[in-house]
Design a protein around this nucleic acid. Structure first.
Lengths: 338, 338
DNA sequence: ATAATCATCGCAATCGTTTGCGGTTACGTT
DNA sequence: AACGTAACCGCAAACGATTGCGATGATTAT
């Protein structure tokens, strides 16, 4: 009961060779009608299903793509996975998911696992700890196409599907300025990540373009709910506290909002807040949270599509950078100041 | 460059046989020191990695477990995946993730894919459409252990890791009663799902035990943010509107809360709300949302552990039902009425 | 009647790795 | 000198499926 039916079982039962069974199953002209019928009937009765592992070995095609992701339990990342899975499903691919839990060491193991398992391509969003990409680039040298999404190494000729973090940050900051904010703080991501650098740069540029001086003490690295609380408290105890906060993601934004409310500081009247990512969060806070929608699902779709393209036909020349459009979702946390 | 290094490549380069290379790599006593060194050095230089596909075929061990889940992009489900992935990682297993997108037809395909890929076990949470389980049970008949989590078929002798939905609903409802609510509505899950039935039953029982009559018009099937809005409006337009809502999950609870606030009905003063699942949501609404914590991560951990146990040693006799503890997380949306 | 053709099917190699068994050396022992 | 015995290593089969090639028997053409 426990072992799977193989082509040999059918062959033995019918007193024919395995080759004949194989050909009969795929309607090869060399095989007689009767033999085909006999084989197909028995196969159906025994519920024969080809062993994908054997096929993978024979064809060097595993029909599997790998995903390395910092943490699945984030609205944004799980949206991406959802997009990846849908595209993969339609193309007949399976998806192997590995989470690095934001650890460089684990990311290395994950990459090796994908390599050993001969996945046909890999989608990667790097961990916060990752500064060296040899373990990933090695995959590509090894014939396993690689597409980065969201968190991609900067200055490297690799395929990536990302958003224009600089522009998005620029737009978010500009929006705050246009609603009348003049003292805008930024809760930033670690400056080891490209997204952290780009978003900070976009923020600075927007300030500069509108003649607002950049103040270093208004930028704090804080990219989680908890860290945002401390950072916000510190900001508000400054001699000249900010009147707006641009947070690097929604969790951080909500952390800031909650802290402000606990300090009885009105949002958005006293301090406006804009986040980044537009998870479900943004809809359910009070006030609802303005945010930059990153379109995670679409990012997953595009990244998977690009990867499948690379699998079909390896890169020729330059790698591609695909930008996913972002857009400002303006809600209550950035109402115009009067 | 593109093809992977095999044991044969090493053998050829060193003018020895593949068997010797294999043995040298695993420090077999039959092989001389020098040969071992030569093999290991070359293997390291060529970055040889065993082909997991070939090993899978040889050993009939894929070191992969499959997961079928309705949708990854839910806090609860992605928490479960995270737990599964962590356990699998520690045990040297890979995780293949399939989402059914709540479709029965796709769940069937997913099951077949896992079967073909010879995963060593499967973790399943069934879709809303699923009433027949043959496609899943077939896996187990086929030697692929099966563990259901959260959404499991009722009345079937299968392994499952679930919460005691009845008790949890009973406790949640009782909590509402104890805070002084007397007219408690329930936004329910489809009564096709076991969790829907059990939670409704627990709700009824709690009412009965406290001498509160059950009213059919206070129970509406609505298990999403959007549906909750309509349902809540309808409830509040009833001749005698409820003074509390027990929602089948947090999204639904938040939908209700938002609608009430839009109707200028104070939460919890006029209407208390309790949700189910304790996602991040609950922390960030205003007021914060009381909820039943389902411990998704832990459920993933326990389900994966049970599955690995079954893989090691197939079921003997009865299947197991593992209950994950739940607990009420009481926040602001169910403050005592005065 | 002999050769050519066709319809059917099996053999064996292949993918990469493992492993039982047997074979080949080079010793040392009588 | 003849034998025993380690120490090393290779052959080949196996996992399941595919496929080029050859083989068989029967039918048809010459």
């Amino acid at each position: 009961m426990s072992s799977q039916i193989t082509i040999k079982d059918i062959a033995k039962a019918l007193n024919i060779s395995a080759s004949t069974v194989s050909r009969a199953l795929k309607d090869h002209p060399d095989i007689s009608r009767e033999t085909k019928d006999a084989v197909n009937n028995l196969a159906a009765k025994l519920r024969y299903k080809p062993n994908a592992v054997a096929l993978s070995l024979k064809n060097s095609k595993t029909n599997t793509i790998g995903v390395i992701i910092p943490e699945v339990v984030h609205f944004f990342f799980s949206s991406v996975i959802s997009g990846i899975e849908d595209v993969a499903y339609d193309a007949g691919y399976n998806v192997m998911v590995c989470q690095s839990n934001e650890m460089y060491s684990r990311e290395i193991i994950n990459a090796q696992a994908l390599d050993s398992n001969r996945v046909e391509g890999a989608l990667v969003s790097i961990s916060k700890e990752t500064h060296d990409f040899a373990h990933l680039l090695y995959l590509e040298e090894n014939g396993i196409p690689l597409v980065f999404f969201d968190r991609a190494p900067e200055e490297l000729d690799v395929d990536k599907v990302i958003i224009d973090d600089f522009r998005a940050a620029y737009n978010a900051t500009t929006h705050l300025i246009e609603t009348g904010c003049k003292r805008i703080a930024h809760l930033a991501a670690p400056q080891t990540l490209g997204i952290g650098i780009q978003r900070l740069a976009g923020y600075k540029k927007a300030l500069g373009d509108h003649g607002i001086p950049y103040r270093e003490d208004w930028v704090i690295v804080a990219d989680s709910f908890e860290l945002a609380g401390d950072a916000t408290r510190n900001l508000m105890h400054l001699p000249t506290p900010p009147d707006a906060i641009f947070a690097v993601n929604d969790m951080t934004a909500v952390g800031a909002m909650k802290t402000l409310q606990r300090m009885s500081i009105a949002v958005p009247q006293k301090v406006a807040i804009i986040g980044f990512s537009a998870g479900f969060f943004s809809d359910i806070t009070t006030p609802t949270l303005s945010s930059v929608d990153q379109h995670g699902y679409e990012m997953g779709v595009e990244a998977a599509k690009l990867l499948l393209e690379r699998i079909e036909k390896p890169v020729e020349g330059k790698h591609k950078t695909h930008y996913i459009d972002t857009h400002l979702v303006i809600r209550e946390s950035t109402k115009r100041k009067s």
